[in-house]
Amino acid sequence: MTSRAGPLPEGLGESFTCAEAIARDVTRRRLRAADVEAPFRGARLRREEPAGDGDAAAEPLALDGRIRRALLRTARAYASVAPAGSFFVGAAALAAHGLPMRSEWSGRPLSVAVHPPAHAPRGRGVRGVKISPRMVTVCEVDGLRVADAVTAWALCGSWLSCDQLVVLGDALVCVPRDERGRPHPERRRATLDELRQATGVPWRRGRERLTAALELIRVGSMSPLETESRLVLTRAGLPEPDLDVEMRAADGRFIGICDAVYRRQRVAVEVEGSHHRTSDRQWNRDLDKYAALAAAGWEVVRLTSRHIRGSSPQAPHLVRAALERHPRG
């Protein structure tokens, strides 16, 4: 029967090197205790309590946050023992820039890059790559050296699908809004022109997929599900809607912001994630907005992931039916 391990020194962070711990009189035996992870040689992580299994933990935003946190925890642990001049690309770089995460990225080796002629790092949990300086711009985000947002996206052309690149691209070029709905273009991560320039670098791997994605990226999709809904609708032959539209009544009164709008038919499409039903504030705000839109003569089509995803999505049928009920003016 093993005794309970004593607390680690307060000065050690969430991740630390074995050398740092030993310098604070932590024994090697203590570094092998159950509350400490050893993701890389010479590096340690304080072990986290497993996430709960409740409904809230399974929601997309919560899952996205867990994946991002896990990637960044592991990246910071490796950064403490990483070779000089190395930097993160792939999922860890995307996580550092706050871009949408995918569940299959959990548990994969970190992609760690160097510029030639340095040797690519090797070891358990790491996939080392060499990347020419002309292919990537390196920056620092919260202490981590990573590919900047634009070239992190461009480097994904070699391993992500076109649709996945569109989701990331939409997230990069979207104009954030504050809690009052005011747009802040100065906060967006990239412009379409910057993505085009990164795609056009000679010998860029995955250029064909990146170019195809550029044709589909739009300013105005505020979530991955909104991007997916637009792709599903347009591939079914429906016209492209206007995105992220400020809606007003006839007297100019502000009603709210709609995800997608067909102006001539006066049809608005709202893409609703789980937070629309789990947040009382969001739920009541939605009800007020839909009532105001109906009073102003708009029909609202509300879509969830069940309508958008799957082999036979219902979203195109629902939107087409609404458009047919409102012939063009």
Results as ranks from 00 to 15, higher is better:
H184R: 13
V167P: 00
E59D: 09
R285I: 13
A62Y: 06
R207L: 03
E179N: 06
R66A: 13
R124Y: 01
G65R: 14
E270K: 15
P109W: 14
P224F: 10
D193Y: 05
P60M: 04
A77T: 06
R24S: 08
C258S: 15
D242T: 13
R281N: 05
G200R: 13
R328N: 06
G11N: 10
A21T: 14
R196S: 12
A190R: 01
D25S: 15
A213C: 06
H276I: 02
D25F: 11
R309C: 09
Q164C: 00
G128V: 08
A57D: 08
D193V: 10
H326D: 04
S223Y: 03
I67E: 03
R127S: 04
R102K: 06
D178N: 14
D242M: 07
E226A: 08
A296F: 07
H115I: 06
G123S: 00
D163T: 14
L144Q: 01
R182K: 11
P60N: 03
T199W: 02
E104Q: 10
A5S: 14
A213E: 06
Q314V: 12
A96M: 08
H184T: 07
G90D: 00
R102L: 02
W153F: 03
V138L: 01
S161N: 03
A77K: 03
T27R: 11
R218E: 14
G128I: 11
V319S: 12
A190W: 03
V201N: 00
R66K: 06
A249W: 06
R285M: 14
S221K: 08
D244I: 07
R218L: 02
I308E: 02
V150A: 05
R182A: 08
G297C: 08
A57N: 02
V26W: 12
G252T: 08
E228K: 14
A79Y: 01
Y262C: 09
V175L: 04
L231A: 10
G98C: 08
P202Q: 04
M135R: 10
S305Q: 12
E226F: 07
F254K: 14
S132T: 08
G123Y: 00
R205I: 10
A149F: 07
L72K: 08
A149G: 02
V114L: 00
P60W: 05
L155D: 04
